[in-house]
Design a protein around this nucleic acid. Structure first.
Length: 972
RNA sequence: UGAAAGUUAGCUCAGCUGGUAGAGCAUCAGACUUAUAAUCUGACUGUCACAGGUUCAAUUCCUGUACUUUUCACCA
């Protein structure tokens, strides 16, 4: 099509019609400029108190998502960002739907990591003069700084909440409410004092947490094999083993000989087979001739002991239960018990020396069998009087040698050898630690386990597998050790009688301490005199008390938040609607909250628990500094050092990413994914911009076209809109935000950009401002735009607000969040239109393919240079299409539903004979259609760029077509 | 070591109760210059992690393996 210009235009100086068409107009920028714009929008929300007002004045019910407190230490990572954004999306949906949303962010402020951080920052001299209260002051200061930093980050994500009044586990009101929970549980008999083995560092004379241990590889222990003489066989074994009973020993192995004074049992694995072997020992030897060992270990032990072990009999491990044996060094007998699967045949003998006071597993087995707890070791690691002749020996130095010698003498020692393995060391003193039983406070889970399990079943777990996760944890867990020997925490409000060491803990003392803490904070526990801390009559009963120095496990802190926050703050509910955290919290916060709440009130603190996975790198690996694959949320928002590699994407792109992934499992993030998010973000933004820009002269109140007067295309589009937004609504409702992401993206790309808006250009630009075909289009566009803004507001909050602020007409609401939820008319739902229009869209695709053939050969550029010949096989459809193809576009009653506009070509001719279409150079035949593409007739109109035979007919405007002439007179 | 979950195009997701796979984006090519650091059109992409089994037939059901993640336990 070479003759693009009309004859007249060639001769005269071209008259420009650009000013006569209605192009888009808007200040809504194509690019977000998020670094500047997002803070502006956030300032707008803050100034107008949008959240605060809606939270209070919305007409609907209250909705409470109770925040799980992040730990107030360190900067935020992707996990924090994802968690808070997910919460914010849910809260904003509820706000838009008219609910009163109360979201109180919280922080977990106590605990070891902060205490250590504070200790590290001190000089050693300063550290020596430390008192608990000094540590607490420093720790509080540190935590406060961390809270402020994290708060600013969260706010920058665009997260809404009561930021000016968050809950901190170190606030007096919180601590007091926590003491209440403790008190209630104590008074109900759920809290008791007992012995439990803990990691103990003799070198620093303190208990250590797992986090304070390190496991150097080069540790060597004095391991030994010993035989414990059997004194009594249970009935079931007399037949098989009875013959050897008089000279039978249990072979055990240990790497810590010093724990033998604490031996109170030998554990076997019920699933393993054990053998009675003949060691060939002389009858005058003190060692037993026959030994019980794990069957699979006979060969190994033959090598170890350097003598042939002949298998004489084999029995199941579980049959060994209740065998009695005599302690080789002390005059007492102990039983054989069934231990757990920790007993293996990888090393040792298959029979495990069990000292409940010196090991985790030993302790659990001991509890199960009701064994006492023996831990004859003092703070410095010296054996105590309970260890008899070994009293005073240091367990890490001379105790082992003495015990080995004694075993030898007693005829118990089978073998001794150094054994290299990993062993816990005190990370600060670099000295070995030991397991030692100490007095601790426990919550008796047994007391309310059944009720807890019942409550779990009543909660909605999303995904449902969450219930399968937490149920066995609660069903199997042992009692909860809630005391810590630490300064930075909420004190266990107990007093001890100086003389008797009896704990003093009553309704009155708890209430008294609680009131003091409510007023002065927990520091008072350390600062005030005991006399002040005690109520009548105890403060003057003539006895002398000292305060306890233990603090509570931080899981008890955060686990009490339902009482400190949901149960006490205005406008909140208990139980709350939703808890939402990472799936690791099944073991953590979900459980600690459940246990305290059930213990006190017999019910779970939440109605629904939603969990999410973890943020991984693009390959699905965990993020770690050493791998260098860490994605920092702050860097996503503000950009990295190299802005080309790591551009400043802004909070909305971060939020869009959160919405795009299926967070029920672990989710990947990285450069590729972020770039894609930025692309999608821009697509949504540009689509919105186009809508905004083309409504610049439109006011829905005065210019909207009645539904009944809309052309079919527009009514079809309104139907699509109801479909799309129903899908979006359902996606939000079911917390499947990735469906929102997919749907909105598809809507913007496929329905709007590629289809409706592409067709709309002719109506919007060419027609006169008030033309029906233009106003009807704008009517639909305004509906699409407003609903799009509402729909994206929970996720792309800043963009949605930016759109709202740039709406070219007045609305009743200054913020998109005040405008309420989606606004869809039931009358728009017309499934029949979808059915009749989908084939037309498919046909449009086929026509495009033929047009593309011609374009490939450079026969056409713009599709307006073409004319389409169409043959339709189906008679009914043919009639319908004929009605959509009037001889004159202007004269036609319906100036929208026309094939030329649908195909974006200048002319369409319906032909009776398929060969007429297929005869053309560019053609195709598809299921019931024949499509041909040829040159459009006439000349290109200078104004609308369509080809028309009417160009040249007007005297005043010889370069434009009849449509444009009429349009410029306000008649088209 | 045990337990739980996951593995569909380069990316994010669909694929209902079994009949050899789809969308958008990205990529590539082209068009337009009246959404212009934008817009439109077309094309391409997969042994549905791997190996077995059930079945006429498996991405879809079962078993095992690998990898990833989480969690717990452990080194007596």
């Amino acid at each position: 099509m070479t003759d693009a210009q009309s004859p007249a235009a060639k001769n005269e100086s071209a008259k420009s019609y650009k000013d006569t068409i209605n192009l888009l107009k808007t200040d809504f920028s194509m690019r977000a400029n998020s670094t500047k714009r997002e803070p502006e929008i956030q300032a707008f929300w803050a100034e107008k108190e949008i959240y605060e007002t809606l939270a209070k004045e919305n007409p609907g019910d209250t909705f409470v998502l109770h925040d799980g407190p992040p730990y107030a230490n360190g900067s935020l990572h992707m996990g924090h960002a994802m968690n808070k954004v997910l919460k914010d999306i849910i809260n904003k949906v509820q706000l838009l739907k008219g609910k009163k949303v109360r979201y109180v962010p919280g922080w977990d402020c106590h605990g070891l990591p902060i205490e250590l951080k504070v200790l590290q920052s001190m000089k050693s001299k300063e550290r020596k003069e430390l008192t608990p209260i000094k540590i607490r002051k420093k720790a509080k200061e540190w935590a406060m700084g961390q809270v402020e930093g994290q708060k600013e980050s969260f706010k920058r994500y665009g997260v809404w909440g009561d930021w000016d009044n968050p809950y901190l586990t170190m606030l007096p009101e919180y601590e007091a409410a926590q003491i209440d929970v403790f008190g209630e549980m104590f008074l109900k008999g759920y809290i008791y004092r007992g012995l439990k083995p803990v990691h103990w560092s003799p070198s620093s004379r303190t208990a250590l947490a797992e986090a304070e241990l390190e496991y150097p590889e080069e540790h060597t222990s004095d391991s030994l094999y010993a035989a414990f003489r059997v004194t009594n066989l249970p009935e079931g074994l007399t037949e098989t083993l009875g013959a050897y009973a008089s000279d039978l020993g249990l072979a055990i192995w240990t790497t810590t000989p010093w724990t033998l004074p604490g031996n109170l049992a030998v554990a076997v694995n019920g699933k393993l087979t054990y053998s009675l072997v003949d060691s060939g020992e002389d009858s005058d030897s003190k060692l037993p001739r026959y030994l019980l060992v794990g069957h699979e270990l006979v060969e190994t032990l033959t090598d170890k002991f350097g003598k042939a072990l002949k298998v004489l009999a084999s029995v199941d491990g579980k049959a060994l239960e209740h065998i009695q044996y005599k302690h080789p060094l002390f005059d007492r007998e102990s039983p054989v018990v069934i231990g757990g699967d920790y007993i293996t045949t990888d090393s040792g003998t298959g029979l495990v020396h069990t000292a409940p006071g010196h090991g985790q597993d030993d302790y659990i087995v001991g509890q199960k069998y009701g064994l006492p707890l023996l831990s004859p070791v003092d703070d410095a690691g010296r054996l105590t009087a309970e260890a008899g002749e070994f009293e005073g020996l240091n367990v890490l130095k001379d105790a082992n040698a003495a015990i080995i010698e004694a075993l030898e003498k007693a005829g118990s020692l089978l073998k001794q050898e150094p054994y290299g393995h990993r062993y816990p060391y005190d990370w600060r003193t670099k000295k070995p630690t030991i397991f030692r039983a100490t007095e601790q406070w426990f919550a008796s889970v047994e007391g309310f386990r059944d009720q807890a399990l019942k409550s779990i079943a009543e909660v909605t777990w999303i995904p449902a597998s969450g219930e399968n996760r937490i149920t066995p944890m609660v069903a199997d867990r042992s009692d909860w050790c809630i005391s810590r020997q630490r300064a930075w925490g909420v004190p266990i409000p107990v007093f001890y009688d100086e003389e008797t060491n009896e704990p003093l803990l009553t309704d009155e003392t708890i209430k008294h301490v609680r009131d003091i803490i409510a007023e002065h904070g927990a520091d008072a526990w350390w600062e005030m005199d005991v006399a002040e801390l005690l109520p009548e009559p105890y403060c003057s009963d003539g006895r002398s008390y000292r305060r306890g120095t233990d603090t509570m496990d931080v899981w008890f802190d955060s686990g009490s938040s339902w009482n400190s926050v949901a149960n006490q703050r205005d406008g909140m509910t208990y139980p709350v609607d939703l808890y939402l955290e990472g799936s690791d919290q099944h073991r953590g916060w979900f459980q600690s909250s459940l246990l305290t709440s059930v213990a006190v009130n017999g019910k779970a603190p939440y109605k629904t628990v939603l969990t999410h996975g973890f943020a991984l790198d693009e390959k699905g690996y965990k993020m770690s500094k050493s791998l260098g694959n860490v994605v920092d949320p702050a860097e996503i928002i503000n950009g990295g050092n190299n802005k080309k590699q790591d551009p400043a994407y802004g909070a909305d792109v971060l939020r869009l990413w959160v919405s795009s992934v299926d967070y029920s499992s672990d989710v990947p993030i990285g450069k590729t994914i972020l770039k894609q998010m930025a692309d999608v973000y821009r697509k949504i933004r540009n689509t919105s911009r186009y809508l905004v820009g083309n409504l610049h002269d439109f006011n829905p109140k005065t210019d909207a076209v009645d539904y009944a007067d809309l052309p079919e295309l527009d009514r079809y589009m309104l139907h699509r809109i109801t479909e799309v937004f129903a899908e979006v609504d359902d996606a939000y409702q079911t917390y499947q935000f990735f469906r929102f992401f997919q749907t909105v993206q598809n809507f913007c790309v496929v329905d709007l950009s590629n289809f409706y808006l592409d067709i709309a250009k002719d109506r919007l630009y060419i027609s006169s401002t008030d033309a029906q075909r233009r106003r009807s289009c704008q009517t639909v566009m305004a509906v699409a735009l407003e609903n799009l803004a509402k729909a994206i507001a929970p996720v792309l909050s800043h963009m949605a607000e930016d759109i709202w602020q740039n709406l070219p007409y007045d609305t009743d609401h200054q913020s998109v969040f005040q405008s309420g939820w989606l606004n869809l008319d039931d009358a728009w739902k017309q499934p029949a239109l979808a059915e009749s229009w989908q084939p037309l869209r498919d046909l449009r695709g086929e026509v495009n393919k033929v047009l593309e053939q011609a374009r490939k050969d450079k026969k056409i550029g713009s599709s307006l240079e073409a004319k389409v010949l169409l043959h339709v096989a189906d008679e009914d459809l043919k009639q319908r299409l004929a009605a959509m193809n009037p001889a004159s576009s202007i004269a036609a009653e319906n100036q929208v539903d026309q094939l030329r506009y649908l195909f974006l070509v200048s002319e369409v001719e319906l032909v009776d004979d398929a060969s007429k279409a297929t005869a053309l150079e560019y053609s195709a035949e598809v299921e019931g259609f024949a499509i041909g593409v040829g040159d459009a007739d006439g000349h290109k109109c200078d104004r609308c760029w369509n080809y028309s035979t009417t160009v040249g007919e007007s005297k005043d405007d010889p370069t434009i077509c009849d449509r444009c002439v009429n349009a410029m007179q306000g008649k088209f």
